[in-house]
Computed example of a mutant assay.
Amino acid sequence: MRAQTSFRSRIVVSPSSSPPVSVGIIANPASGRDIRRLTSRASVFPNAEKASMIVRAIAGLEAAGVEHVLLMPDKGSISGLVYRALGLDGRSTEGRRVRFIDMTVSESIDDTLHATEAMCAAGVSAIIVLGGDGTHRAVAKRCGQVPLLALSTGTNNAFPEMREATVAGLAAGLIATGAVPAAAGLRRNKLLRVRCDDRDDIALVDACFTGHEYVGSRAVWDSALVEELFVTFAAADGIGLSAIAGQLEPVTRAAAHGLHVRCAPTGDTPRRVHAAIAPGLVAEVGVRDYAHLSPHEPVVLTGRSGTIALDGEREIELHTGSRIEISLDPNGPQTIDVAATLTHAAQHRLLRHYAGGAA
């Protein structure tokens, strides 16, 4: 993997009196490797490409004037490739423009949670996330008001986008440096708040109650066991469980409401939809009914046993005495709209330069 990492000029330069602008990058080495590789036809997203994406994103960030980049470490599957691509010597990156956070690596979701906390504590102005819906959900739990740039490298990718990392890095840099104002380039996302007994959790795209008795392999791929489905948004051309709702009534990310779908065995109802619930897997799903999910109006489920899946992965095991409360919160994480950011930059001539003169 080779990359051009030297830049003679920058588009945006922060005043010397201002603190250095920094951006974090979190790449999940496990994203795109769950059981759906076996149960459907999902492709594997190699860590070599994730490392290449990081290097390309850094190129965009540097061109936009970002002075420091903080990276989440792993046990070498991504970080080792990034070291070599950037020509870093040795394992120490202290004081460099690009450095890895000093943290214990557990190769679990805790790495993402701890890295997000460390980046926010270090004062990053944005975080670029490489992963699927589950990775972005983990970052959203800890990022607070720090905006995210969501890049898809997972299995079901309803929340993040497929984007060239260089362009994504440039957009993140323009937001981080303040060259493009937040009002022009940031979008507020909805989320679902899930409360079960003494546990509180969130989902960025969907939460569903299933008839699975155990968390097990986590990923939900058998649509016949889905009983209740809640979504923040639902694209007609989406993939994952939210695609079921998308075939009933598409809901945009900007819409004030979500959807609540009550599913049923296909033999029990004449209403059915076909939806792509995983790559290579189109399922027929029976639907009893569905309704709009209004903000801050909780739906309560009781007397159920099974599991709750959050963004496609089973997380919570329930017994018949559990009380589940699900509500839509319009004040979820902020994300960087790449197209809107770069359109603003073009309209305001932020990326134009002329030989021998100012822009």
Rank of each mutant, 00 (worst) to 15 (best):
K141E: 11
K141A: 13
R142D: 03
R142H: 10
C143E: 01
C143T: 12
G144E: 03
G144H: 09
G144I: 06
P147S: 09
P147A: 07
P147I: 08
A150E: 02
A150Q: 02
A150R: 02
L151T: 01
S152H: 10
S152P: 00
T153V: 10
T153I: 09
T155L: 05
N156T: 11
N157K: 03
F159V: 00
F159Y: 07
P160G: 02
E161C: 09
R163W: 11
E164G: 12
E164N: 15
E164D: 15
E164W: 10
T166E: 14
A168W: 12
A168C: 11
L170I: 14
L170K: 08
L170W: 09
L170R: 09
A172G: 10
A172Q: 10
G173V: 04
L174N: 02
I175D: 13
I175Q: 12
A176N: 06
A176Y: 02
T177A: 01
T177Q: 04
A179C: 07
P181R: 07
A183E: 15
A184H: 09
G185V: 05
L186I: 11
L186R: 08
R187L: 11
K190C: 05
K190N: 07
L191R: 15
L191F: 08
R193W: 05
D197P: 10
D197I: 07
R199P: 07
R199F: 12
R199G: 07
I202R: 07
I202Q: 00
F209H: 12
G211V: 05
E213M: 08
E213K: 07
Y214K: 13
V215A: 08
S217D: 15
R218T: 15
R218V: 13
A219M: 12
V220Q: 04
V220M: 06
W221G: 09
D222I: 01
D222Y: 02
D222F: 06
S223Y: 03
